[in-house]
Design a protein around this nucleic acid. Structure first.
Length: 859
DNA sequence: TATCAATCGTTAAGC
DNA sequence: ACGATTGATA
């Protein structure tokens, strides 16, 4: 909150000394090898901001109008265009920094943009808002909290907090008998909030003759009531309440519409309805009437008013690519981007198709894959950088085998001079990391898993933070109940419930109930513990009160004059509660780590004090709630990165390993029944492919351990969509068969036509892909474009995996394995396709083999 | 209140 | 297979 909203007047035609625009090397390098050849377009001297840009990019930087949609294909220099556009707005004096609001989805993206804008402008970028949707909203809401009945120190509930709250509600209502779980109810509530619905509006349209619906409405109501009582907002509320604020208080909205004259929104295809509405509210004009009112109130608006006296809507730039929309499952609505021209008539649309990242082979594969999604506007990425290497394909026998291949290839690349940090391994599900990590550890390959457990989600950190929250927002019952018996004070669940109902019955907050716990008639020990905690929190709250205040309690001088800073309060609470001491003296070795984590948190509060001398407790807590993954920014380390395909979005690497390209995994099984599911999975695959600059590896396994047992997998339908000539199969899914193909290691033990078992429905070659599917057949789910007979697939991959058909084995049988040699069957377990032979090999020890596909024969 | 066995539910993930 | 969570037991 560095720039007071009303302080500066910012005429559109401001006179000021032009900020020197300097492009740093990294920004210039963003367009890589294609940077040359687009030198000056001739004529007038052009700004260095346009150096190295292609004509479309230039236009995107220079266009001035109400609305601009930039369709930015993968690797098309989007960030560069966006940051230069911001710089250009300032350079041409179309805007003051404080008139610009740039919104991203992730802190990482915001940080990157801030950094790059700062690199161009230096101090000139001060006062600009470059932040996520959520932090922008928090900033606004903290300022205006009272207007919508919240404390300005409102708590922000994360999904774990939501879950705990819903769990209590569901328990209280016995709603689990209706099949509600905290997760399911939470997902539904979140979805509704993303549509800007609340409990009442939902109830109006709900089918109230359905008892389950009635129950859900009640859950929703109670959830909203609890959050309100705790002066808390969940993540969805942050957006929704801001929209509500703007709609219910036009004068408040007018102040922000006046201030933000230029909105830029990144990843627009990922916006949900609430975010769309927020953008819309911010870019509406201020009526002449309201503008006049503002002027009468002493707000400077004259320079902004048009001939009718109104303030026109702010200019809006959105950047997106519907082909990279992979978050429909959490409410993203691509209609926001496809309907942009309708929503903002007269909008300019610029298409960025030239790719500066990948080789043409990789792009051709990407284009071919995404081309199978219908209802998209055609877009073809192209590169001036040449074909490059072929894509490498590999079919492994198992997940471990696949991991071994990845590991081996990483070593080959590394030996050839590629740094580990330039390589990444992608997968669809987190469970796939297991095998990969195992092998990478064994081969001593440095790696790190991106994403995963976050520091602030650890229980001990949440405990420590709950103390701080309880101080900052005394009405937050959730925080209080979390610390009530942490560390152990002998306050059990019965006492907790007692306090809670005592509070409800007497219309007290939980905190007040604690202070009055003496009148509850509990044991003296328990009562003493409760009172001690209440006193500790009250004392901590007092530390935050500035010492120099006037008679009315208004601080004199600096905002926090004399008040304790965050680290002092935290240390006071830790000492007073014994939280840290208990962990230190514990004999559980894990508690040692927990203690260290808390110490790390203390260190972070000290850093915060240093970086934000004026920052208070609430500012710290806000930062913690919204900036959850500050630790994975250190990607300068020399390690291979492992991450899910979702996490990979927005990143790029020299070499990419895309693993688990199998039916059931990519596309994921769970997506099959959802409308638009398979298409979204295809976009996910597309996103993965387009992350690669030079080398792309696609791998799959014929069997994969999942949920404790082994499943037979078949190649992903998406592999068919890549022209065969682009892929060099080191080991193809097609094995020796009548149509030819390679003879992959470990797959070809039986050459005498081991394709029995066609009578078995699980075995039928139903779709020309040699597929066996699990149970339900996949032919109709294959999502093939109509009018493309399967027999005409360009790719000759048959997808056939080994099939021992009806091979019957029993204990005592001797078998021969292609790799392991001869052995004796000890036991056969499992049913149907999952029958497993437990074999004692003569020289290789005991193994478990999936009879259906193992390279074995009876002897 | 603490510990242990049984049970459950496993897609992705930003803030 | 695995981890988190729940329920039963001492």
């Amino acid at each position: 909150m560095t720039t007071p909203l009303n302080a500066e007047s910012a005429p559109a035609t401001a006179r000021r000394s032009a900020t020197p625009i300097i492009l740093d090397a990294s920004d210039r390098a963003a367009n890589g090898y294609a940077a040359q050849g687009h030198a000056g377009t001739g004529g007038a001297r052009q700004s260095p901001l346009l150096d190295g840009l292609n004509p479309q990019q230039k236009e995107a930087v220079e266009y001035r109008g109400q609305a601009l949609l930039i369709i930015a294909g993968a690797g098309s220099g989007k960030t560069s265009v966006l940051t230069r556009r911001v710089a250009s707005l300032l350079e041409t004096r179309d805007a003051w920094p404080s008139q610009i609001l740039a919104i991203t989805f992730t802190n990482k993206a915001a940080a990157e943009m801030r950094e790059r804008v700062h690199a161009i402008l230096g101090q000139g970028s001060d006062g600009m808002w470059i932040s996520t949707f959520h932090s922008s909203c928090v900033r606004i809401l903290r300022r205006e909290a009272e207007k919508i009945g919240l404390s300005s120190t409102f708590s922000i509930y994360d999904s774990a907090d939501t879950k705990v709250t819903l769990k209590r509600i569901i328990k209280g209502l016995d709603a689990d008998t209706y099949g509600f779980t905290p997760g399911s109810a939470g997902a539904k509530i979140s979805k509704l909030k993303n549509e800007l619905a609340d409990a009442d509006s939902y109830a109006r349209n709900a089918n109230m003759s359905d008892p389950q619906e009635v129950m859900f409405v009640e859950i929703f109501r109670q959830y909203s009531a609890r959050l309100r009582a705790a002066s808390a907002l969940d993540f969805d509320d942050l957006i929704g309440e801001t929209v509500y604020l703007f709609r219910a208080f036009p004068k408040v909205a007018a102040l922000y519409r006046r201030r933000f004259r230029h909105l830029l929104v990144d990843e627009y295809q990922d916006t949900n309805h609430a975010q769309y509405a927020l953008v819309h509210e911010l870019t509406r004009p201020v009526t002449a009437e309201l503008a006049q009112e503002m002027e009468d109130d002493g707000v400077h608006v004259r320079n902004l008013r048009d001939m009718t006296g109104a303030i026109p809507g702010a200019s809006l730039t959105v950047v997106g690519d519907s082909d990279q929309s992979i978050y429909a499952f959490r409410g993203a609505d691509t209609r926001n981007i496809s309907g942009f021209e309708r929503d903002y008539p007269g909008a300019k649309v610029i298409l960025l198709e030239q790719n500066y990242r990948s080789t043409q082979n990789i792009l051709s594969a990407a284009n071919a894959v995404i081309g199978h999604n219908f209802d998209r506007t055609d877009k073809k990425l192209w590169s001036a950088g040449g074909d490059g290497e072929k894509i490498v394909g590999f079919t492994a026998y198992s997940g471990h085998d696949e991991a071994q291949f990845v590991s081996d290839e990483i070593q080959v690349l590394h030996a050839a001079g590629m740094a580990y940090r330039d390589m990444a391994v992608f997968y669809r599900t987190n469970a796939q990391t297991r095998a990969l990590e195992e092998i990478l550890v064994r081969s001593a390959t440095p790696y790190r898993v991106v994403g995963g457990t976050k520091f602030y989600e650890r229980a001990e950190i949440k405990d420590a933070l709950a103390y701080l929250i309880a101080v900052a927002n005394p009405v937050d019952e959730l925080a209080l109940r979390r610390i009530l018996n942490t560390p152990k004070r002998g306050i059990g669940p019965a006492t907790e419930t007692g306090l809670s109902s005592f509070a409800d019955d007497n219309e007290l907050t939980f905190r007040q109930a604690m202070r009055n716990s003496a009148s509850l008639g509990l044991g003296p020990k328990v009562t003493g513990a409760i009172l001690k905690l209440a006193e500790l929190l009250d004392a901590a709250a007092l530390m935050l009160v500035p010492t120099s205040v006037t008679d009315d309690g208004v601080p004199v001088g600096a905002a926090n004059d004399g008040a304790a800073n965050v680290s002092e309060v935290l240390e006071f609470l830790l000492n007073g509660s014994g939280l840290l001491a208990v962990l230190r003296s514990s004999r559980d070795p894990q508690d040692e780590v927990r203690a260290e984590n808390i110490e790390e948190l203390v260190a972070q509060t000290k850093d915060f004090n240093k970086e934000n001398p004026d920052g208070g407790l609430v500012d710290f807590l806000t930062q913690v709630s919204l900036v959850a993954a500050a630790d994975d920014l250190d990607d300068a380390s020399g390690t291979v990165s492992l991450m899910t395909l979702h996490t990979a979005k927005g990143l790029e690497y020299e070499a990419v390993f895309l693993t688990g390209v199998e039916e059931g995994l990519l596309p994921h099984q769970m997506s099959a029944n959802e409308p638009g599911g398979p298409a979204e999975e295809r976009r996910l695959f597309y996103v993965g492919i387009t992350r690669a600059r030079k080398r792309l590896y696609l791998s799959l396994a014929m069997t994969r351990a999942q949920f404790g047992d082994i499943n037979v997998a078949m190649p992903s339908r998406y592999l068919q969509e890549i022209p065969a000539e682009l892929i060099d199969w080191k080991q193809s899914p097609g094995m020796a068969n009548s149509r030819g193909g390679t003879q992959p290691r470990a797959l070809n033990a039986r050459r005498d036509g081991g394709f029995g078992g066609f009578g078995n429905s699980l075995n039928s070659l139903s779709d020309g892909f040699g597929g066996r599917s699990r149970g339900s057949n996949s032919a109709k789910e294959a999502g093939l474009p109509p009018g493309k007979p399967k027999t005409e697939w360009a790719n000759k991959i048959t997808g056939t995996v080994r099939d021992n058909g009806s091979l019957e084995l029993a204990a005592g049988d001797r078998i021969r394995h292609h790799d392991f040699g001869e052995g004796r069957v000890n036991q056969v377990t499992g049913e149907g396709t999952k029958r497993i032979a437990h074999v004692q090999f003569d020289s290789m020890g005991a193994k478990k083999l999936l009879i259906k596909i193992a390279p074995i024969e009876k002897i």
